[in-house]
Simulated assay, not measured.
Amino acid sequence: MVRTNISLWRRRRHEVIGSPDPEPSHDSPADALGLRDELVRGLRRLSEKQRVVLVLRYIYDQSVQEIAEQTGMNPGTVASHLSRARRAMRSHLDHPATVNVKAGR
């Protein structure tokens, strides 16, 4: 499921950025696989709740309120999990070998 979500994100990220016709990529397939592997490793380091809200927000383009309704969480809690998940993913992608986020957060 995570790999499917990452593939969907890659296809949709150009829509989010607003590029109607993305420039051709000069990355090799190995680079793309490396990025995918880093994303998967980063997602695995998140708590389940952080992973859920991150996927619902950025893959399924749901609002914080919609995520709260679906998960039964308070909107403030959703926003908090989302903020921590973004920070952890950003940190992991900047320094993949040194970041380890506690799963309970």
Score class of each variant (00 low, 15 high):
Arg10Glu: 05
Pro22Ile: 10
Glu69Cys: 02
Thr4Glu: 13
Leu56Tyr: 13
Asn100Glu: 13
Asp31Leu: 13
Arg11Gln: 11
Ser83Cys: 04
Arg51Ile: 03
Ser19Tyr: 08
Arg10Asp: 01
Lys102Ala: 10
Arg57Leu: 03
Thr98Tyr: 04
Met1Asn: 11
Arg12Tyr: 07
Ile67Val: 08
Gln70Cys: 05
Asn74Phe: 02
Val99Ser: 04
Gly34Met: 12
Asp94Tyr: 08
Leu35Lys: 15
Ala30Lys: 13
Pro29Tyr: 06
Pro29Met: 14
Val2Cys: 08
Leu46Thr: 06
Glu48Ala: 13
Ser25Gly: 10
Glu15Leu: 12
Arg105Phe: 09
Val55Trp: 00
Asp21Lys: 09
Arg84Cys: 02
Ala30Val: 13
Pro22Thr: 07
Arg12Ile: 01
Pro24Val: 09
Glu23His: 11
His92Thr: 14
Ala97Phe: 06
Ser47Gln: 06
Ser25His: 02
Arg84Met: 03
Ser25Asp: 15
Ser28Trp: 02
Ile59Lys: 02
Arg45Asp: 13
Val52His: 01
Arg36Glu: 15
Met1Phe: 07
Val2Met: 13
Lys102Asp: 14
Leu33Tyr: 05
Ser63Ile: 04
Arg44His: 09
His92Gly: 01
Thr77Asp: 01
Asp37Arg: 15
Asp61Thr: 06
Ala30His: 08
Gly18Lys: 09
Leu82Ile: 02
Leu43Glu: 00
Ser63Trp: 06
Ala30Met: 11
Arg86His: 11
Arg45Ile: 01
Met89Pro: 04
Ser25Met: 05
Pro22Asn: 07
Met1Gln: 12
Thr4Ile: 10
Ile59Gly: 05
Arg84Trp: 07
Glu48Tyr: 12
Pro29Ser: 09
His14Leu: 06
Met89Thr: 03
